[in-house]
Design a binder for these strands. Sequence first.
DNA 1: GGTAATTAGTTGTTATACTAACTATTATTG
DNA 2: CAATAATAGTTAGTATAACAACTAATTACC
Lengths: 143, 143
Amino acid sequence: MHEEPYGEYSFLLDRTARRVKQFAQQRFKTLRFPVTVDQWLVMKNLYEKGAMKQNELAELLFKDNPTLTRIVDLLTEKKLVVRNPNLADRRSFQLDLTKEGRRKVEQLRPKIQDIRLQAWEGLSERDFQHFKKVLNTIYKNLG
Amino acid sequence: MHEEPYGEYSFLLDRTARRVKQFAQQRFKTLRFPVTVDQWLVMKNLYEKGAMKQNELAELLFKDNPTLTRIVDLLTEKKLVVRNPNLADRRSFQLDLTKEGRRKVEQLRPKIQDIRLQAWEGLSERDFQHFKKVLNTIYKNLG
DNA sequence: GGTAATTAGTTGTTATACTAACTATTATTG
DNA sequence: CAATAATAGTTAGTATAACAACTAATTACC
């Protein structure tokens, strides 16, 4: 195994990605924040970028349409997101945060930093830049 | 977003991990290899390390028991893995590859390298070592 | 030896990911 | 204008992940 170049990279990548998500989800639970990590990403993007169509959101999040449909379904049930008719194209909606959704985002945003900093303890900004470069290269190589 | 330290790391991590798995799964399909990436990990570890109990495998793979039970269920259905009674402890099994399972592993192992190399094009062994260090640090920080 | 605590794996539930197929709507083409 | 192709989002199916609860077996303790 150690004699093969880049052995185990995908295993470590998967393991770490899962752990990061699990940790964040647990923190959300502690904070009584009533959504999953992936639902949060939807809300965060709607907050920062404003109302948009589902396929615009899918592009931002690199998620496929079925998955996103289901996430949005759950968020609309929780009354955190609404699907407004898109007058320019009856095939699509304008997704937007509700007032409650907006408030929830504002509550959690300041806390995300704490979650993030725990992961990066002992690592530097330089490590981060390098890490990003590798992740982006791999992503592009497989794209 | 760019003013926050380590912003987006989890997003990029998740995105890349998903893409890597997706790419590998597509390659498996092309190669007519009849298992998923996660099933492959089970088989690979049984091949390299020999028969073992489920909880030993769970530790190696960092997967929880329900998930592993389901993966092993599917592999036994495909007749690639068997659950042999563990005479020392009636609560557990010895998981092992079947003859067919062993053959399948031997078929695919040489091909895994190609899949891996595409991801790491343009990156070096040094990049890899650094990447591993970051992933392992994050994992430990959140453990 | 008997009882309580722990353990190995399973079952149930909810969520997300990927692929395939589908329906209604819009765009393109001749 | 009509027919065809493409598109937006949805539904269905299969797989994995995480958490909770459970059952049978084993271990620990008195």
